[in-house]
Computed example of a mutant assay.
Amino acid sequence: MLVTGGFIAGVLSWQGFNTAMEATNKEEFCISCHTMHDNLLPELQKTVHWNNRSGVRARCPDCHVPHNFTDKVARKMQASREVWGHLVGTIGTREKFKEHRLVLAQREWARFSANGSKECRACHDYKDMDFDKMRPSSQVAMRSAAARDQSCVDCHKGVAHQLPEMKGARNPAFDTLVSNASGQSVSAGNEYYLVVPQDLFADEALTQRIGSVEVATQVKVLETKGDAQRIELALWRKNKGYGRVWYSNFGLNITSAILDKEMARDAGLVNVLASQEDPMTGLEWQQVKASAWMRKGSLIDSVEPIWTIARASYNTSCSVCHRQPDEAHFDTNTWPGLFAGMVGFTSIDQDTARVVLKYLQSHSSDFSTSQHGAGSPEGALQTARP
């Protein structure tokens, strides 16, 4: 009787567990709380995964509940922290949900990357795809992905829900640079490079903001007083409008500083050293110099550590969909438009994107000794400009 009773109890326990498991795998359960119903369901309803010509719809568990039993149980255990977050109100409002959305998305992206997007490929399998029916541009990317057996989420983030705001993300690689900059010995008269963008001020007290200076910009340190440093900028600008945007090189749109419009034409601040017409555009460019104050602790003595981070980010983030172009394949002024079309398909945060673009421009064909060579901007001759 004891064995029989134990067996029956085991069967009933298993049946109860399985019933509860199946109940929590239904879409009705997923959207029963207002957090999911109000935030994620409306987004899904606007996509092809909800409504399409074939009438095949993906439901919440199809994508977010592993089909394998062991993985499913593990995911249920992980989901307990999300349930707790809902119960205590961590993501209870639209504002709170948006605040935590990046972290939630990154967890799912990591899970999909780790299992090769197994849930996606329950419906979308490379071996069943007819590549010839795809658009030519898609064929190249998909054939390459199939050859590498690539995880779907590498390229297709945001296909069912809105992408989170990436400005809250931060590249941890910059933490090392910031730490190095805080310990950098800085001497007046020497030149250094910005590891992060900084505001520029007219006064030592850092109260009168006059503009900003970009990452990887070269500056000369004039003096240091307390928490402030006075620096000198020697750059180029186009002589049109207020001339607010300052560039690192003549004729090349590599943004290095941006002044407030009232200050950009202030002769007491800006010293025009020379003027030169750009034969490519007919615009007059001015070589300009100015000094300003900024908060100390963001300078290093070599630009190479910055380029190392930018190069790694470019090689890893911009090659998941296709092979990225060589840096010197395009000229400096072509890169911004091309990169703008690429970066939207990556998870690069805004600050890293700015560094990568500046890296690409600074290693473009304008700084190469051959048309598509791998030249370095330091000491290289500009082949496309006088």
Score class of each variant (00 low, 15 high):
Tyr193Ser: 03
Ser185Arg: 13
Ala105Asp: 06
Glu165Asp: 14
Arg148Pro: 01
Gln150Ser: 15
Gly116Asp: 03
Asp128Phe: 08
Glu191Arg: 15
Ala141Leu: 13
Glu204Lys: 11
Ala122Phe: 00
Glu204Thr: 07
Val140Phe: 01
Leu163His: 07
Glu108Lys: 12
Arg143Asn: 05
Asn190Phe: 07
Asp175Val: 09
Asp203Cys: 06
Asn115Met: 08
Asn180Asp: 15
Pro136Thr: 01
Gln184Asn: 07
Phe112Val: 00
Ser137Cys: 06
Pro172Ala: 03
Ala141Glu: 04
Arg121Ser: 02
Asp199Val: 07
Cys120Pro: 03
His161Ile: 09
Ser113Arg: 11
Phe131Tyr: 11
Ala169Ile: 00
Val196Met: 12
Val196Gln: 15
Lys127Asp: 11
Leu200Thr: 06
Pro197Gly: 03
Asp125Gln: 08
Asn190Tyr: 07
Glu165Cys: 01
Gln139Phe: 00
Ala173Thr: 02
Val159Trp: 10
Ser117Ala: 14
Val178Gln: 14
Ser179Asp: 12
Asp125Leu: 08
Arg143Glu: 02
Arg107His: 06
Ser187Ile: 07
Gly183Glu: 11
Gly168Gln: 12
Pro136Asp: 05
Val140Pro: 00
Met129Asn: 03
Phe201Gln: 05
Lys127Cys: 00
Trp109Leu: 08
Leu104Tyr: 09
Ala169Gly: 08
Lys133Arg: 07
Cys152Ser: 06
Met166Phe: 13
Asp199Arg: 15
Tyr193Thr: 07
His124Ile: 00
Asp128Met: 06
Glu108Thr: 14
Ser185His: 09
Ser144Ile: 03
Asp128Asn: 14
Ser138Lys: 08
Ala146Lys: 13
Ser151His: 02
Gln150Phe: 10
Glu119Ala: 08
Tyr126Gln: 03
Phe174Asn: 03
Leu194Met: 15
Ser187Thr: 15
Glu165Val: 10
Trp109Cys: 02
Leu177Glu: 07
Tyr192Asn: 11
Leu163Arg: 15
Asn180Pro: 00
Ala110Glu: 09
Leu177Met: 10
Ala114Gly: 04
Asp128Cys: 01
Ser179Thr: 13
Glu204Val: 11
Pro136Lys: 04
Cys152Val: 05
Ala114Thr: 04
Arg170Met: 08
Val153Asn: 10
Ala145Pro: 02
Cys155Glu: 04
Lys133Pro: 00
Asn190Leu: 12
Ser137Asp: 13
Gln198Val: 08
Gly183Leu: 06
Asp149Gly: 11
Ala202Val: 06
Ser144Leu: 10
Ala122Glu: 14
Ser117Tyr: 02
Val196Phe: 06
Ser138Ala: 13
Ser151Leu: 01
Ala122Gly: 05
Gln184Asp: 03
Arg143Phe: 00
Ala141Ile: 15
Glu204Met: 05
Arg148His: 14
Pro197Thr: 05
Val195Arg: 09
Thr176Gly: 04
Ser144Ala: 13
Asp130Thr: 09
Leu194Cys: 14
Cys152Glu: 01
Ala145Ser: 12
Ser138Gly: 08
Gly158His: 07
Phe112Ile: 01
Ser187Tyr: 05
Leu177Asp: 08
Gln162Ala: 05
Asp199Ser: 13
Met129Ile: 06
Asn180Ser: 15
Glu108Asn: 15
Lys127Pro: 00
Gln150Ile: 04
Cys155Tyr: 01
Met129Trp: 01
Val195Pro: 07
Arg135Thr: 05
Leu200Tyr: 06
Val178Asn: 10
Lys118Ala: 13
Lys127Ser: 11
Leu200Asp: 04
Leu163Asn: 13
Glu204Ser: 12
Gly116Thr: 02
Gln139Leu: 01
Asp130Leu: 08
Glu204Tyr: 02
Leu177Gln: 08
Gly183His: 12
